[in-house]
Design a protein around this nucleic acid. Sequence first.
DNA 1: AAAATTTGTCTATTGATATAGACAATTATA
DNA 2: TATAATTGTCTATATCAATAGACAAATTTT
Lengths: 247, 247
Amino acid sequence: MIGQPSSIERRSGVSLWRQIADQILRSIAVGDFAENTALPPEVALAERYGVNRHTVRSAIAALVQDGVLRAEQGRGTFVLSRKRLSYPIGARTRFSEGLQGQASERRSVLLESAVEPASRRVAEGLGLAKGSSVIRLETRGEADGQPVSRATGWFDAKRFAGIETAIAETGSVTASLQRFGISDYLRQSTVLSARHADAADLADLDLQPGAIVLVTVAVNVTPDGQPIQFAETRFPAERVELKLSAL
Amino acid sequence: MIGQPSSIERRSGVSLWRQIADQILRSIAVGDFAENTALPPEVALAERYGVNRHTVRSAIAALVQDGVLRAEQGRGTFVLSRKRLSYPIGARTRFSEGLQGQASERRSVLLESAVEPASRRVAEGLGLAKGSSVIRLETRGEADGQPVSRATGWFDAKRFAGIETAIAETGSVTASLQRFGISDYLRQSTVLSARHADAADLADLDLQPGAIVLVTVAVNVTPDGQPIQFAETRFPAERVELKLSAL
DNA sequence: AAAATTTGTCTATTGATATAGACAATTATA
DNA sequence: TATAATTGTCTATATCAATAGACAAATTTT
């Protein structure tokens, strides 16, 4: 006897929307509502639980806020996959390494590139004079078609002239660097933080307002310590976890 | 560090009075509030939980309703000792014997009766052929108006035709059996188990989901070993304990 | 292109929840 | 006996929870 109706109790001191939200969570855990599929429409849920549609909406709103569900106007409300991509971070970590088996399709998309004077922060990171010319690359990482990272990287424009075309062609930073004679590089430093996604990240990573992003700021260097790249990467916390290995 | 503040959460979908009531229950279970002693006065509780006195009163009112507390004007609010009914089980135990002094009012209610073919389990218990006609009786035991047992009993329909009406009249199995010339009977075997109450028991015994029931499966026989009754009885574990004597 | 489906937003109403204050009723204590 | 402590009752007010209905906006289906 599993999967009782567990119907809703009124005047119990627990609001109906909270009871329904808990019930939906249970249904997901049990597998009654499968991941990446749509929930029954709100009217159907309202009927099932014997409450008003707006009450169901309150329950759904709470679960959307918690990152469990995702509502899309006109389409439906979907159960998000709760397993996050585990992204390894270590001294020798490459972008796509260590993700085998977690996603069948993994790629990096170049969104924008520009040559600009370096800000102080970037100049310091790359060991250049402030205002030196740098190449800025905006990229988005995707796994199975879903955005999982959003990076802004800077290279010394003198040393790596034209790297943006190589990256656009190959889709790989590692492969592009090899064209410049760099076969190996290390992660010199990484600073990790978290914040709410800003408007740009919300759009690029396809997130809902209020979503959280993990932010890494890293400096990659050659084995002899020469700075190659300064990069800030934002990961949607609801889809990605960072697995730290030896730095 | 026992007895964390476990403070109250607002706008969680769970009303403050419900959270406080649960907290008081926890404090009782842990022993912070001892049985038969007074709770801190309402104003003190209100300050402790950071709410209005009336909110505390709502919580107390709910627990008084549940029979956990008793409030006395001018004196205080007291934790009731929730002594469980001690139900003796032995070879010669009768339903209402041995309960003297524990409950002032004790009765058995016939919920349903039917004549059916015996299942294999019942047939074996009664020493009949499978499919023989048996009388099934569904009864509820009550002590001081509170349900303390829920039994399903089977009799040989040929031997005890019409026993259901006798039980409905007298309210006693023992008295009814006397009409069939049985003045004494013994408990031949008893199997004891426990499980969560199913939906039907929750309703019949007035329990909350998740409640536990003690289950006895017994065969009663005449002194010369002739099977009379096969019975499964469910006892709410929170209200009843079974005291085993010599079988 | 049109219709149907589904989520989003708005207004309105009712009852439950929570706070606040005042005072009564009962009991224990000085 | 007076006083203090404690629960009980009442009124009032503000916010949350739940229901109800209508329509907009986006998407899918026909």
